[in-house]
Nucleic acid binder design. Structure first.
Lengths: 337, 337
DNA sequence: CCGCGTCGATGAAACGTATCATCGGGCGCA
DNA sequence: TGCGCCCGATGATACGTTTCATCGACGCGG
C-alpha cells in the first residue's frame, strides 16, 4: 500500500505539504498542487482512514443497532438513517441484535472500540449497564422507540402503549371479547409495552379477557407457528380478536389460518397488525394496523445524535414521542363501528 | 480517553506486557495478568481500534453495498451476511446505492479508505472502472447477483434471464398475448437481465408482444404509479400479462388496480412478481413469483470473500449460478396449464 | 534601504497499538 | 556448583496521518 510519504517523494515536496493539499487545497501553491495531484494519480494513493482517525481521536462513523434487519420496518428506518447520515458526511455501520442483549452488548463494545461518533440504538433490548457505560464515556447516543427506557439519553419513539391500547379498544368495539396478543419475547421493550397497552384496554372493559401467545422471533414464520397453535384448539377456546406484534407476524397468522371455517378473518377472528408496512394494505385481507413513521424516526435520530456530537457540553435530554395512528382496514371490520 | 500506557503505569508493568495480556493472555504470568485486569477495569480502558488497524494494516470489517435497503429482499440478504460475518469475527458495514452508480462509487471509495477486509457488492450498478480499481488494489470482492458482469471477481447469482424467461413462458401458456415488464431502470444489471429474459420468451412465441414500462425505483409506490398508467389506458391497449421487477412492485400494481372491472387479477391481467418475499404467498391475490434464495446468497458471498481475504495469492474466480424457481400461485392461474 | 507581514513549504512530534529483539532470573540437569 | 534453557517482562520501533512551530523568500510601505 502506498502512503503519503511516497507521494511526497515523487512530487518532490514534504509530507506535510501533501497533507495540506489533501485537507486545505487552497493553502498550497497551484503548481505544487498540480505536481502532488499527479503523483497521487500515478501512484494510486488512497488515504488511510485508520491513521486519520488515530490522529483525530474519533471516527466519522455512525452506528445503528436494529432489533432485526429482516423486518422491513428496520430496513426502512435504516434507509432513512443512512440517507441522513450521508448528508452529514458520515458513514453508517449497521448491526442487528435479533433480540439478544448479549449480542447487542458485544456490538456496542465493538462500536466503542471503533470510537464511533455516535450510536443509534433501535433494538429495544439495551441493557442499563451498557447505557451507563456509554454515558460515562460521553458517547453521543440516541434511543429509538424506547420511550422512558432511560433518562440518560435523548430518544425518539412511538408510544407503543397507546398503540395497542387503541388497537385493542377498536377490537372490543368490533365485538371481540377474547383478545390475544401474539408476539414476544417481552424482554424486548417494544413488545412489553405493546402487551401493557393491550392489558390496559382490556382492563377498562369488564368481560373481556386477554391472553398472550409468545413467540421467539417476530417473523412471518413465527406468526405462522403461533397460528398453528390457535388452529389446533377447539373453536370455543380460540380468541375472537388478535393483535400481532408486527405486520410480519400478522401475515404469518393469515397464512396459518388459510380460509378454514371458524378461522375466517375478520368474521371469526378480527386481526390487527403493527407498523403499517407498505404491503399491509394489500394482504389477503387488507390489514388493520398501527402506523409508525419510519422516515421520521430515521431522520430525527440522526439529527439528535449529530447535535450531541457537535455540541461542546452535554445537551439536555430530549424525548420525542409520537402518537401512533390506527389505520383501519378490512381485517378487523366486522360490523359498522 | 485512557490508553494502554496509563493501564501499564497503574499496573506497574510495561506497555508491551499489557498488549501481550490483551492478545495472548496465556503468555503472561497469572498475578501480573490480574493486576493488569484490575487496572483496565479501574480505568475503564477500551482498545482503540484505529490504532490496532493502523498497526495491522487492515481492518476486520466487511462492507456490503446493497441496491436498496428498503427492499425486504436486501434486508434478508444483509441479515444473512451479517450473521455469517459475525461467525467469522468480522464487522459489517452497510450501504445502499439506490441504483445510483455515482453514489456507489463514493461508497466504494470510502470503503477502500477504510481498508476493509473485503467487499460484497449487491447493487447491480457497479462501474467497470470501480471493479478494475478494486482488482488493481487486490481488495477481496464478491459480486452478488451480477452473473457475467465481470471476470475479475467471484460472484454468486441467480440467473435472472432464466427467471423471467420462465415467468413469461408461463404467462404465455396461461393464454397471455400482450406481456408487459414493469420496472427499471435498465442501468441496474438485474433489471436489464430480467428484461432480456422476457424478450427471449416472447421471441420464441410468434404472435406475442412485449412492452417495457420503466420505473425509477422498485418500491410499492413505484409499482402503484406504473399501475395507474395502465389503468388510464383503454381496455384493448392494456397488457394481459405482467411481470414485475420484484414483489414490491407487483404489490404496488395490485394496489393500483384495486378490484376494478377489466383489471381483475388474474382473469383480466395475469401477474408474476420476483423474489418470493415472505409475504408473497399472502397478498390480496397470492403472488406467482420467481424465488431467489437470500440466505444462501448472504452466506456464500461471505464465504467467498473470506476465502479470498485469507488466501495468500489470488484465488481462481468462481461464479456460482443458481437456477431460479418459479413459484406458481393464484395471481397467474387462468386456466389449467 | 530596512523592517515587517504574508505566503508557502518544511520537518518534527504525537496519536495508540503490536511486534520483536533483548534481557534477567529461576530452575533443572549434569 | 555451573551451564543452558525457558518463561516472563521490557522497551524501542513502526504503522500513516495531521498539526504546529519554524523558516525562508518575497513584496510592500515607510
Amino acid at each position: 500500500m502506498v502512503s503519503i510519504r511516497e507521494v511526497a517523494e515523487r512530487a518532490g515536496v514534504s509530507v506535510g505539504t501533501v497533507s495540506k493539499h489533501l485537507n486545505t487545497p487552497h493553502r498550497v501553491a497551484p503548481d505544487t498542487a498540480e505536481r502532488i495531484r499527479r503523483a497521487i494519480e500515478d501512484l494510486g494513493y488512497v488515504r488511510n482512514e485508520a491513521a486519520r482517525q488515530l490522529r483525530a481521536g474519533q471516527s466519522n462513523t455512525l452506528a445503528f443497532v436494529a432489533l432485526e434487519l429482516r423486518n422491513p420496518f428496520f430496513g426502512e428506518v435504516a434507509h432513512a438513517v443512512e440517507r441522513r447520515a450521508a448528508e452529514s458526511g458520515l458513514f453508517l455501520v449497521l448491526a442487528s441484535s435479533d433480540g439478544d442483549p448479549v449480542r447487542e452488548s458485544q456490538y456496542i463494545d465493538m462500536f466503542v472500540q471503533q470510537r464511533v461518533r455516535g450510536l443509534i440504538l433501535a433494538s429495544g433490548t439495551t441493557r442499563d449497564a451498557d447505557l451507563e457505560l456509554l454515558a460515562a464515556r460521553d458517547i453521543p447516543t440516541v434511543l429509538v422507540d424506547a420511550y422512558g427506557a432511560s433518562d440518560l439519553f435523548s430518544s425518539v419513539s412511538v408510544d407503543d402503549v397507546v398503540g395497542t391500547r387503541r388497537a385493542v379498544t377498536h377490537l372490543i368495539e368490533q365485538g371481540c371479547r377474547s383478545i390475544a396478543f401474539v408476539g414476544g419475547p417481552d424482554t424486548v421493550r417494544q413488545i412489553a409495552e405493546r402487551i401493557e397497552g393491550a392489558r390496559q384496554a382490556v382492563e377498562a372493559h369488564p368481560g373481556v379477557r386477554l391472553e398472550v401467545l409468545p413467540t421467539e422471533e417476530r417473523t412471518v414464520a413465527a406468526g405462522h407457528h403461533a397460528g398453528d397453535v390457535i388452529v389446533a384448539r377447539r373453536a370455543r377456546e380460540r380468541p375472537d380478536g388478535i393483535v400481532a406484534a408486527n405486520d410480519s407476524v400478522a401475515v404469518g397468522l393469515v397464512q396459518s389460518f388459510g380460509d378454514r371455517p371458524g378461522l375466517r378473518i375478520p368474521s371469526d377472528i378480527a386481526l390487527v397488525g403493527y407498523d403499517d408496512m407498505e404491503f399491509a394494505a394489500t394482504t389477503l385481507v387488507p390489514l388493520t394496523t398501527v402506523r409508525r413513521p419510519r422516515d421520521m424516526f430515521g431522520r430525527t435520530a440522526v439529527d439528535l445524535v449529530r447535535d450531541q456530537a457537535e455540541a461542546e457540553g452535554r445537551l439536555p435530554v430530549r424525548s420525542i414521542v409520537i402518537q401512533p395512528e390506527l389505520v383501519v382496514r378490512a381485517s378487523s371490520l366486522r360490523r359498522r363501528g
